[in-house]
Amino acid sequence: MTKGWVKSFSAVLALTLVLVGCSNSGKNNNGTGGAASGSPLAAGDQTVIGGAIMNLGWPWYQGAIDGMNNYAAKSGKNLKLQFEDGKFDINTQITQLENMAQLGAKGIVVFPVDGKAIIPTMVKLHEQGVKIVVGDYPQSPDNPEDAVWETFVGHDFKEMGKAAGEVAVNYLKTLNKEDPTVVYLSVPASGQASVDRFEGFSSVIKEAFPNAKVIEEGDPKGDRNSAQTLFENVLQRNKSVDVVSGHNDALVLGAYNAAVSTNRDKEVKFIGLAGDKEVLQYIQDGNPAWIGEVLQDPVVLGEVALEALLASLDGKDLGETTPLPKPETITPDNINDYDWKSWSWLGN
């Protein structure tokens, strides 16, 4: 997360807005620039934009909402944003997208619940003229022609895994072990996103320590409680575990709780992914078990996703993906450089 950006962001628009009217959109993809003739943004009328959120039960997604609101405020365009919480349920999210289109949304930023099930709905909305940008969770259509979204905006998950791996390697080098044991908790339901994070992480570990034992444990639920149970079992099977990381902070916090409950937290180091105030507080407080947090910046994600959608409505073209900045890593050495307690998406 870029320090300067983070310090300047704030939520500036109300989230609950009523959608009215019906409309159609044009074709083409994303970019930047002024409204073209015939663009829904050209006439100065209010443009309705939807934001379909995977799960607001995860505070991280509040950051994506903040980012979209930030960009709407500074865009100079007459926008009305409507956000809906998919509650990590695909049927709920499908209904929400259909309702947004019926109520007049000219474009929707979708943070999908999974990697495929929402695609038929996006195809249907595309046929109705609704522009769609996919954020955070890459989609895998069976038919390439069904990739109807204007662009994908998301973090490079493999780079996130690599960043966590680099933190792990820096610590492991201090142990003078040729065969350290490293555990990574994944979420198989997250598809390629989970695969990429693990592959990035394990590749860095194996390059530095070819004899390392890298254990991947899949957590079907992907929450803190299930991760605690899962890691308790890992600890029972392994006399020594040196480092733990995982798909997100909830999993790593669950593993940490398991280590504490079994009195093994002094021997294991933990690296979080995404951004969580509890993890950051542990690092800030000097808890020796926590050696890093790899940030997945949701505010920048929301800003760039809305910018791309508006560019699409202006008739601009973008490629299949719109890149985001490389992930940053917070460690005990640099945490004082970050004003993380001001980040509203952490629940502060």
Rank of each mutant, 00 (worst) to 15 (best):
N233F: 08
G161N: 10
Q128Y: 03
A311R: 13
P327W: 02
Y71T: 07
N263H: 11
I215Y: 07
N257T: 07
G50A: 05
Y338L: 10
S312D: 03
S140C: 04
V123T: 08
G63V: 11
P298A: 06
E150V: 09
E178Y: 00
G33D: 13
E320R: 13
T322M: 09
S226Y: 02
N211A: 15
G50W: 01
L185F: 03
V234H: 08
K27L: 14
N24Y: 06
D146N: 15
T229D: 12
G222K: 08
G34R: 00
S37N: 06
N143R: 04
Q62I: 03
P325M: 03
E307P: 00
D276Y: 04
E207C: 02
K3I: 15
N70A: 14
R197T: 04
L273C: 07
D333S: 11
W60Y: 14
I90F: 01
V6G: 13
D314I: 00
A14N: 15
W343Q: 11
T329E: 12
G33K: 14
V294I: 09
G319V: 09
Q139Y: 05
T151L: 13
E150T: 11
F231M: 13
P288H: 07
S240I: 15
K341Q: 15
V148D: 09
E166H: 06
N99Y: 01
E307Y: 00
N287S: 14
A227I: 04
S202R: 09
L310Q: 01
T95L: 11
E267S: 11
S342Q: 06
W345R: 11
K206V: 01
V183P: 13
A35C: 10
A255P: 12
N91H: 06
E166A: 04
S261N: 13
V299R: 09
D276K: 06
V109C: 09
E293S: 12
N28Q: 13
N78V: 00
N99D: 15
V304D: 09
R264W: 03
Q96I: 00
G38P: 09
P59W: 01
G246D: 06
W149A: 08
L13W: 01
K206D: 07
L13S: 08
K124N: 15
V252K: 07
G254Q: 10
V12Y: 06
Q62S: 07
D297F: 05
V299C: 02
S140H: 09
T92S: 10
L56V: 01
N334E: 08
P298I: 03
L125K: 08
Y282C: 14
S23W: 08
P220G: 00
E216V: 11
F270I: 11
D223H: 06
V169I: 02
G135W: 12
E328I: 08
E232V: 04
A227V: 05
Q139P: 07
S10T: 12
A193S: 15
L313K: 09
V299P: 09
F152G: 14
G272L: 10
N176A: 06
P220D: 00
V304P: 07
L235F: 01
A250F: 10
F231I: 11
S261E: 13
D156Y: 02
Y71V: 06
V252R: 04
K106G: 11
V268F: 01
V244H: 06
V48N: 13
T151S: 12
K106N: 07
A255T: 04
Q102P: 02
P323I: 10
G57M: 03
G51T: 00
A255L: 03
V148A: 07
L185H: 08
Q192T: 14
G129E: 05
E303S: 13
